[in-house]
Each structure stands twice: as structure tokens, then as C-alpha cells.
Amino acid sequence: MDIKKVYIVLLNWNGSEDTIECIQSLKKLDYENFQILLLDNGSSKESLAHLAEGLGISRDFPMNEISKFSVDGLKESLILYPFTENHGFSRAHNYAFEKIICDFKDGHYIWILNNDTKVYTDSLTPLVNQFYGNKKLGLCGSIIAYSDRPQLMQCYGGGYYYKRYGMVKLVGKQIPVSKRTKKDFKINYLMGASILADINVMRKVKGFDEDFFMYFEDLDLSFRVLQMGYEIDVASESIILHKDSGSMTRRKYFFYYLMKKHTFIFIKKHFKHISITQILFNLAHLIIRARTFKNLYYGLKGIFNGISIKNTKKK
């Protein structure tokens, strides 16, 4: 059987410790044909220096040029794509997608993987196997377990979007990993922490919608792939460990702002009109969950901005 190449795309932003742990775990994959593309979203010099040291790289990462590095334990060079500023999740990933599609003609799959994850030896192989014999499969996700509670699922690959309420809910949350069976879970989007994508599908769908700086880009991608007639699925034998909202630990207010803003951008893009029910449910959710005045303020600001922004282009 032809072992198709997988390009693993990691995005780093001042998260050197997480990124080092993730790459160290990737070295142990039993899948042989992969290459890591590391995107850096304008991290500090100190963070990049720590990252280079942690990976055993003797020279500093360049701040403004694409470079290749040999890393012990990796068969292929690690490719670094540095940005001078934080472009967000979607735009940074789209840059990598374009390079893969244009420059790497032998590429077959793209694995979108959060840098605050750790993988098991067999995390990738079941994802790839899911595509064999299924030409309609466009995206495939993993079982995502908590990093500090690996016996529990954070979600069964993703979640479910409820159009009536304008709300998303992770499916399988807090359920033991040992209880995972496909018949018990219904999802309509994959979580961006781990998505294996067919390179031809990503070419057709043109990557993430950059109107979503961070959050909801995975929901939007899943919906667009489904609208194109492809399927999404979860490889139940592929399990990864994920830290819960690691990049937003110290900026929770920004999480509420982006989540609520993008909630309404998504609704307008896919369903045109925003209902009173959707607004009320999102307000209630925010009031219950915000906990601090700052979180509440920025969440309300996100709702207002999301509703006020003119309809975005359909991508």
C-alpha cells in the first residue's frame, strides 16, 4: 500500500513549551511519511530562542525567512514559517496550505494539529486509514481527550451546531474514552485541534475563512466541506491529548469577545438572518459563564460587533 505523505501543520504563538512537547510526541509516531511545518505567529525572540533550544537546534530561528532545520528524531527537516505579527489562526494556516498545495506536489494530506496537544504513537495512522476506500471523505477528526485527564474525552472529534439557538456544544464531553462508539455520538463539525484533510478538498474549499481570526473557523470549514458534498468523520482509534484553551489562559476576556463576535458572523454568512432567539440564548449563555465584569463586557462587545458587521463574502 502506498504510504501517502502527511504535512503536519503546527501554529505557535509564544507557546514554546507546548510546541516542544507536541513535537517530541510526534517523533514517536508509527506513521513513517510525514513532515512538520511550524508556523510562528510573531512570537518574541525569547520564546523562539527557548523553542530552538528545546528542539536541539544550535542556531536561532530567523525572524523573517522560511528555513529548514534538522531535528533529532525526525526523518524529514522541520520547516519554519515565521511571521512578524500575529495573523490569527485562519490566515496563518492558509499561508501554509497555499505553500503545501503549490510547492509540495507529492502531498496527500494535511494534518491541522494544535501545538498544545500531545499525540500517541498510533494517533495518525487511523486518521489516514479512514480515507482509504472513501472518496467522499473530506475531513477526519480524532478523539480529543484532556491532557490532565487522559481517560476523559474533551469531545468526540468535534461538536454539534444548533442553528435555532446559534450555539455550539462539544459532543462527548467528560465521557470516558473507553466508552467511545460512533453510534452514540452525532456531530456536524470537527474541532480544529486535530483535523486530517484531503489536500484536494482543501484546494477546492480554499482553506479557512479569514473573517474568523480564531474560533469558529473549524465550524465554518466543516460546514463548507459538507456543502460541497463531502463527508466528515471521526477515527475513533485516533486519540490525542489537548490542553483546555491553552492559548487563552491569561486572556479569557478575548476568548469571550471572539467567540461571541464569530457566532454572529457565522450565522450571517450561512443563514443570512439573525433571530431574536439566537441573540437571547447567546446573551444568557454569556451572563451565566462570564464570571467577571471584564469577560461580560468583552462578550457583549463581541455580540454587538458580530451583529453590526456587514455580511461577509461567501467563501
Rank of each mutant, 00 (worst) to 15 (best):
D2E: 13
I8W: 08
V9S: 02
S16E: 15
E21T: 03
S25E: 07
L29I: 07
Y31W: 15
E32G: 08
F34Q: 04
Q35I: 13
Q35F: 14
I36K: 03
I36W: 06
D40Y: 00
S43H: 14
S43Y: 14
S47E: 14
L48V: 04
H50P: 00
E53L: 09
G54H: 00
L55G: 06
I57R: 12
F61Y: 09
P62N: 13
M63S: 15
N64G: 06
I66C: 09
V71P: 02
G73H: 13
L74K: 12
K75E: 09
L78M: 10
L80H: 09
L80W: 07
F83E: 12
T84K: 14
H87C: 12
F89G: 00
F89W: 08
H93I: 04
F97C: 02
I101Q: 11
C102W: 01
G107W: 00
I110D: 10
W111C: 10
I112V: 14
I112F: 04
D116P: 04
T117A: 12
K118A: 02
T121C: 10
D122F: 01
S123I: 03
L124N: 08
L124K: 01
T125V: 06
P126S: 11
V128K: 07
N129P: 01
K136Q: 14
L137F: 11
C140L: 05
A145G: 02
S147F: 11
S147G: 09
R149T: 12
Q151Y: 03
Q154I: 02
Q154M: 15
Y156P: 05
G157Q: 02
G157R: 09
R164T: 09
Y165R: 12
V171P: 00
G172K: 03
S178T: 05
S178H: 05
T181E: 15
K182V: 04
F185G: 03
I187E: 01
N188R: 05
Y189D: 01
M191A: 08
A193S: 15
S194C: 15
S194V: 13
S194Q: 09
I195R: 09
L196D: 07
I199C: 09
N200F: 03
M202I: 14
R203D: 13
G207K: 02
D209A: 08
E210M: 06
Y215L: 15
F216I: 01
L219E: 11
L219S: 00
R224M: 07
R224L: 08
V225N: 02
V225I: 04
M228Q: 10
A235I: 00
S238A: 15
I240P: 01
H242D: 06
H242Y: 07
H242E: 15
D244T: 11
D244R: 08
S245W: 13
G246I: 05
S247K: 08
R250Q: 05
F254Y: 11
Y256S: 11
F264A: 00
K269P: 08
I274G: 01
I274H: 03
S275R: 04
I276H: 08
T277D: 07
I279A: 06
I279Q: 13
L280I: 14
F281S: 07
L283D: 00
L283I: 05
L283M: 04
H285C: 06
H285A: 10
H285I: 02
L286V: 00
I287M: 13
K294C: 10
L296V: 07
L296K: 00
G299W: 03
G299M: 05
L300H: 04
L300F: 10
K301T: 11
I303S: 04
K310P: 01
N311H: 10
K313Q: 10
K313Y: 08
